[in-house]
Nucleic acid binder design. Sequence first.
DNA 1: AACCCTACTGAGAACGATTATCACCTTCAC
DNA 2: GTGAAGGTGATAATCGTTCTCAGTAGGGTT
Lengths: 147, 147
Amino acid sequence: MTTAAHPTEPLDAARLYGRGRLSAARRDIAQALASLGGAFTAEDLHAAVSALRPGIGVATVYRAVAAMAEANSLALVGARDGSTLYARCAGGKHHHHLICTGCGTVVSVACPVDGPLVRSAREAGYTVTAHEVTLYGLCPTCSKERG
Amino acid sequence: MTTAAHPTEPLDAARLYGRGRLSAARRDIAQALASLGGAFTAEDLHAAVSALRPGIGVATVYRAVAAMAEANSLALVGARDGSTLYARCAGGKHHHHLICTGCGTVVSVACPVDGPLVRSAREAGYTVTAHEVTLYGLCPTCSKERG
DNA sequence: AACCCTACTGAGAACGATTATCACCTTCAC
DNA sequence: GTGAAGGTGATAATCGTTCTCAGTAGGGTT
């Protein structure tokens, strides 16, 4: 099977930020993050944290997001209306993401680039150093609702 | 073979913009476009057109790019430093792009998502409605230069 | 060839996401 | 407990892109 529920282990706030310090604000950000289902923008996260910690600055949220992405706790999974979309992602084996456009849920999908595509590119003289893959669609629940 | 030189037929300015009008500015934009090798940003194109038509406004270039993208003459092939990357792309059969990070050349690659990946997602209850794939790497020439 | 409607143009303002700056406050290793 | 490194919030700045507006010019129609 190629798709898999996206890993969402319990949030270990201490590890979320890698080697960064764990401030009170970042604890609240971690908690708000847990309440967000799938893909989210920095603004979404800022709004969620604001409920727990009114007055938190946007810059703080952006910095926390950057720290989490740096620590591989968060993956950049696309863009929506000019805003960057992130999702929790433990890292681990190389994979990509399918984002449900109905509810924002994110699931992992196997990488379709590694293997034949990279090999044939190499045979043609090309070196593939990086790639981006994002799928958009509907999760089973949203698929049913929309026929 | 999975990779193919990206189609770059002679520029037919009249068709580049679909049903839009062909103004003198747009003719110059078409000519500047032909001089750009592979992937480019709106700013790159604006700089190139400015050589032919000093004083052309950025908005004009952005509008022309939007018209060409709308007419399927241009494809959005990724992003670089927060700017959108475009490349000439005649459309036609569904494919994706490999961008040489050395020289900006763009080549077509077959879609690795259609087929097994979509099928297994469907079997898992997911409906895949859209996807984005971009490869980055080095063309044969740049591969040799960099060992 | 003159006419007219409409799309295109350039300048500059506006916009929105993100990042930088700065003075102050916390964390945490020692 | 102390101090240096790092985090915080407010605010300004940045920067790609889009909008607004008044003027211009395609190009189909007479």
